[in-house]
């Protein structure tokens, strides 16, 4: 049995009187896709922030590749290969899409790893950036990579968020709601993309509200409510879990609509 790439142990975080995270623990195996679901305000994004160092946790441990991330700044954690996307996308709107990737490609990690498939020495960052965007579904022939980020539709912005992570050649990507706000066809094209990433050996955590797409992808699913983990298992196990049905889906009737 391989070692987990990411171990989260009993993480607690309170904002004033609100216990945003209450003793969350889980393991993430290399190459897996772990889904994180839960109602609004159940602490999913706080969990992402806690793992990636954007907020300081009160107690508990986050261990990435055997290394305790306590006290590390977000950029140091990203430098280790643990990256994230943001739920609210704020690309650098005034710049063309591919120029958005110059920032991650300028980082130490990208210089070390050569950026996505740069392989050792990096050529011009612009070329690498356009290559990454093409990889992730920006049609080079139609000049989408060269369009201003402000003129791109949501689907491309979500991809741009993901591309920003990929430019670092990460080992783990935590996707905070990449499917939300996408049309059905955009989502349909996103699923194979995530599968491709998994095949290339990237480990994924996907925080989602779109259960259908998530259950197709995720090997394991973690359910959160009121800051604590209420269930973990394969999608089928979680679907059958009584507590999950009650806490998250409300009642049987509502569940049938999902």
């Amino acid at each position: 049995m391989a070692e987990p790439i990411l171990k989260v142990r009993d993480v607690n975080k309170a904002f004033g009187g609100v216990q945003a995270l209450a003793g969350v623990s889980f393991d993430l195996m290399p190459g897996d896709i772990l889904g994180v679901i839960g109602p609004n305000g159940s602490g999913k994004t706080t969990l992402v922030n806690a793992i990636t160092g954007f907020i300081k946790i009160d107690t508990g441990q986050v261990i990435y590749k055997g290394r305790d991330l306590k006290g590390m700044a977000p950029h140091q954690i990203a430098d280790l290969g643990l990256t994230r996307t943001f739920q609210v996308m704020r690309p650098y709107f005034s710049l063309p899409a591919y120029k958005n990737l110059i920032v991650p490609l300028f980082s130490r990690r990208a210089r070390r790893t050569g950026g996505w498939r740069g392989g050792g020495r990096m050529g011009s960052r612009d070329t690498v950036a356009v290559d990454i965007l093409e990889e992730i579904g920006f049609e080079r022939e139609s000049y989408v990579p060269y369009k201003n980020a402000s003129s791109l539709p949501t689907g491309y912005l979500k991809r741009l968020e993901l591309a920003r992570c990929l430019a670092l050649r990460p080992e783990v990507i935590i996707c905070d709601e990449v499917f939300s706000g996408l049309s059905m066809s955009e989502m349909a094209s996103m699923v194979p993309l995530m599968e491709k990433l998994q095949m290339e050996g990237v480990t994924l955590i996907m925080v989602e509200h779109r259960l259908r797409e998530l259950f197709r992808l995720a090997g394991r699913v973690l359910v959160m409510n009121f800051g604590s983990k209420i269930a973990e298992g394969t999608p089928d196990e979680v679907m059958e879990n009584k507590e999950v049905k009650e806490a998250y889906f409300g009642s049987e009737e509502v569940f049938s609509y999902v």
């Binding site: 977000p74 950029h75 990256t83 704020r90 650098y92 709107f93 110059i102 300028f106 920003r164």
Partner: peptide, 24 residues
């Protein structure tokens, strides 16, 4: 230049710059 884009990134969206492994 590329470095200037980092500066502008820090101005526009420092969270994304942090998540890109760059110390703002």
């Amino acid at each position: 230049a590329d470095m200037g884009l980092i500066f502008r990134g820090v101005k526009d969206n420092d969270q994304a710059v942090k998540a890109s492994g760059i110390s703002i």
